[in-house]
Design a protein around this nucleic acid. Structure first.
Lengths: 233, 233
DNA sequence: CGATGAACGAGAGCACTGCTCTCGTTTCTA
DNA sequence: TAGAAACGAGAGCAGTGCTCTCGTTCATCG
């Protein structure tokens, strides 16, 4: 994080950095990630465009900072919703987490597009984004670990996994320290994919004229996922 | 479609339209949808940038034309892969279709981003894109109709649907003319969401450092979906 | 306290973009 | 064959990301 402001200059710097980020965020609500203009941000703050470069070395870096902010915001929303549910109401925890992500996405659609839409350039995610980016999947993993600990079986009978299939998810398996069986881990990743896929299809307009009530349909799909995960009603 | 070329001018027009589209497509392989430059396309063809506007009234329209082309290309790939499998090998048909979409996405990643990533502007999809866009989901619907006709049960016991849940997917239900039960229809839409979600997570870098072998993991997730759909091995 | 150097803001400028307009030329059609 | 429509090229406008320079302000150290 940033060090404590010792001098007036330091204070002004972190304040202006915040102001730029905030103005960029405001603009992002209106125009979408690709059209975000650094000059427009500078204009809104009444400063020369060149001055912005004292705080963010390029547009890329500004967008990366926005990325981190949005990952944290959506992650916090999901964490809050999930942890508000009693620990053993596993199914409700999943539904709350999934619903929270979609709610955040609906009210921050351009931000969602920034996170889960096409990455802006060729783009290799900088190191500082991967932590915040993992908050949502980590909620799912935590939930699955609890479910595993409770000894709740999966929705459909598990299949015997091949060595290659286990190896494919080895990093995550190691990350959860073996607290989740590889079979259940795979289902959790599928749940994540379904959540993101469903939200993207809806927000990016692919369900237009096909699905009428997005709320109801989303809820229904997530119930289906819950069944597959074996989460008891 | 375009009418038959009657005069030399007509002929040159459709030829140049094709050339522009092709050059744009070539550039799209390198730079991504947001960075696609109309002037660069014109340069590559050795013409003035203003001349391109005789064929596409704006950059938007050019991109829309690319969109249609890519929807058709990926749709054709999925259709071909699926129809190459014997009709009653339902599970294999699903796996072939899903694999074909992912293969196409892997070799045409920017194009995939154009189709399923964040829509470029605020963007309401023009009427001429929705037909081609439906080719992939239509393959899934056709498959599910066959499965339904064969009387194959779903993977997990169906839940009683509410009136609202049925109403939410009414347009699609009407489209398939009632040949697919609403419960199965919902699972099919979930399968679609999982397919797109999984492919997007992989291609947009969200599985980086988490999943090691994308091929194996994708296959495994799609097998899970097949189980949920009740497709026999 | 005062001088040195770093950080800063403003502005001009470069190369690029999408797009418009004009102006000759080519081509079709009546 | 004459008039009209379509065309290609070029200049130009407003906008972009980014760089460089040039005074000014501020912090630090002797």
């Amino acid at each position: 994080m940033t060090s404590a402001p010792r001098t007036a200059r330091d204070f002004a710097r972190i304040e202006l950095t915040r102001a730029i980020l905030s103005a960029a965020r405001t603009q992002l609500a209106a125009v979408g990630p690709g059209e975000l203009s650094l000059r427009a941000v500078a204009r809104e703050l009444g400063m020369a465009s060149s001055a912005v470069y004292r705080y963010f070395p390029s547009r890329e870096h500004l967008i990366t900072a926005l990325l981190v902010e949005c990952y944290n915001e959506s992650g916090a929303a999901v964490e809050a919703a999930e942890s508000a549910v009693p620990r053993t109401r596993y199914r409700k925890r999943w539904l709350a987490a999934a619903g929270a992500l979609r709610d955040w996405a609906c009210t921050n659609s351009f931000e969602y597009a920034l996170l889960y839409g096409s990455p802006v350039p060729g783009y290799a995610a900088p190191q500082d984004t991967i932590g915040p980016a993992q908050r949502v999947p980590q909620v799912l993993l935590g939930l699955m670990a609890d479910v595993e600990e409770a000894g709740i079986p999966l929705g459909s009978p598990p299949v015997r996994l091949t060595r290659a299939q286990r190896a494919a998810v080895a990093p995550i398996s190691a990350f959860v320290d073996g607290r989740i069986d590889d079979e259940r881990l795979g289902r959790a990743l599928m749940a994540w994919a379904t959540l993101i896929g469903q939200t993207s299809l809806e927000l990016f307009g692919h369900l237009h004229q096909g699905v009428l009530d997005y709320d109801v349909h989303f809820r229904r799909v997530m119930e289906n996922v819950a069944d597959d995960l074996g989460l008891p009603r």
